[in-house]
């Protein structure tokens, strides 16, 4: 079947199988920042935005996204330049496999803080990001960078 997705601002017609999950479709279409870390909706490496909200692309059927807007790390990296710089300065991307999804989450988190849905506290921010597993850093370095970027004391 054919579906239409607005990926990173551009409408695209994509040929899919009804069994395809969004993750596989996006990777096939060349959005390789979207990673498959587990396939059970647990690691968060496949996070993308649908209509502005973060979702697990491995756990969302592609067909159900027909007509919706999808944003991947490729689409927001330039806007997130400051954060990228801080994360690199802290040395907090190690293998980097979890990094693009974290970038997407941070983009969403910033918006949620702005519209008052998430409080700008360490506890609330950690909770917001809990679905993004990282095996390398132990999270502490990531959070040093994230708190610095968001200006959380």
């Amino acid at each position: 079947m054919k579906i239409n997705l607005k990926i990173n601002g551009v409408w695209k017609e994509v040929e899919i199988d009804p069994s395809d999950y969004l993750l596989d479709v996006l990777r096939r279409e060349g959005y390789l920042s979207v990673k498959k870390g587990c396939d059970t909706g647990t690691c968060g490496a496949c996070t993308v935005l649908r209509d502005g909200y973060p979702i697990l692309s491995c756990a969302t059927l592609a067909s159900t996204c027909d007509g919706h807007e999808i944003t991947t790390a490729e689409g927001i990296a330039d806007e997130m330049e400051d954060y990228i710089k801080i994360l690199a300065e802290e040395g907090a991307e190690q293998c980097g496999f979890c990094s693009p999804a974290l970038l997407v989450m941070l983009y969403a988190l910033k918006k949620e803080i702005e519209n008052g849905k998430v409080k700008k506290t360490k506890e609330d921010i950690r909770r917001y990001l809990v679905g993004n597993l990282c095996r390398c850093t132990g999270y502490v370095g990531q959070e040093r960078a994230i708190f610095r970027y968001l200006g959380v004391e």
Binding site: L32, S33, V34, K35, K36, T72, A73, E74, A77, I84, L87, A88, E89, G91, E93, C95, G96, F97, S99, P100, L103
Partner: peptide, 22 residues
């Protein structure tokens, strides 16, 4: 001295750098 990782540019942006990407 703490300098950023040489590969941080590509890793954080999600450039295709892992075996399955390549």
């Amino acid at each position: 001295k703490s300098i950023p990782k040489k590969d941080s540019y590509g890793l954080i942006r999600g450039l295709p750098v892992y075996a399955d990407d390549l």
